[in-house]
């Protein structure tokens, strides 16, 4: 009886020990193959960069207002764009603006072509959770397009993808089949100087 119990106890202790070792190993592993590697979007040495992030204005007119924010000026332009998208995702801090992204929406990936087209892939919640309305859809789209093109002259136009594929519209109204350029006519912000300069060249 005692022998039996001690064998069982020994076995139990052994199992617990193994599980603990496995958990430790898991923590110690540098890269878990089941999670994409998360590389930092900036390093501490990167200088700060002032940006304007566009959100729907609470008063409705103009449609979009800009919130001043600061990001790190990463060496890679795509990483600067990702930081701006993160700010958009987090929503405005000011009470005079509203979030532009539908609930649970994430910018999953971004790629900038040589011609300056930024392809941004959003989770499909950007359409499934979108409440609709033409003006409201326009606000969602141009908060993305303007926030990227206004701050990053390297990005000339933005093509929005949903769930990894091309979609005709987000909520039935605004055509997404062509990349969209900056449109500040729906904001109270003047064209950025660097962009005016680059356009004149």
């Amino acid at each position: 009886m005692i022998i039996g119990l001690s064998v069982a106890l020994g076995f139990f202790v052994d199992v617990i020990g193994r599980v603990q070792t496995m958990m430790k190993n898991d923590k110690e592993t540098e890269e878990n193959p089941f999670k994409p590697p998360t590389q930092p979007l900036y390093s501490k040495d990167d200088p700060p960069m002032s940006v304007k992030v566009f959100f729907p204005a609470a008063l409705g007119e103009p449609l979009l207002s800009a919130e001043d924010d600061t990001i790190f000026k990463s060496a890679n332009v795509a990483n600067r764009a990702r930081q701006i998208l993160q700010r958009l995702q987090e929503g405005p801090r000011s009470g005079t603006m509203y979030p532009s992204m539908p609930k649970d929406t994430k910018a999953q990936d971004l790629f900038i072509s040589e011609q300056g087209t930024a392809f941004v892939n959003f989770s499909s919640t950007i359409t499934t959770n979108h409440p609709g309305g033409v003006l409201n859809e326009l606000a969602t789209i141009y908060s993305i397009v303007n926030s990227l093109t206004y701050n990053l002259p390297e990005i000339k136009e933005v093509k929005i993808l949903v769930g990894g594929i091309e979609k005709e519209t987000l909520a039935g109204h605004c055509l997404l089949l062509l990349p969209l350029e900056m449109d500040l006519s729906m904001t109270n912000v003047a064209a950025p100087e660097n962009r005016t300069a680059s356009l004149q060249q």
Partner: peptide
């Protein structure tokens, strides 16, 4: 169409026409 606004207080109506120059580069 009938609208939706994040700011529930403000009632907005709009008459939309196609954006000028859309697809022009294409």
């Amino acid at each position: 169409h009938v609208g939706y606004s994040s700011s529930k207080v403000e009632a907005t109506s709009s008459i939309f026409i196609m954006k000028e120059g859309f697809g022009q580069t294409l």
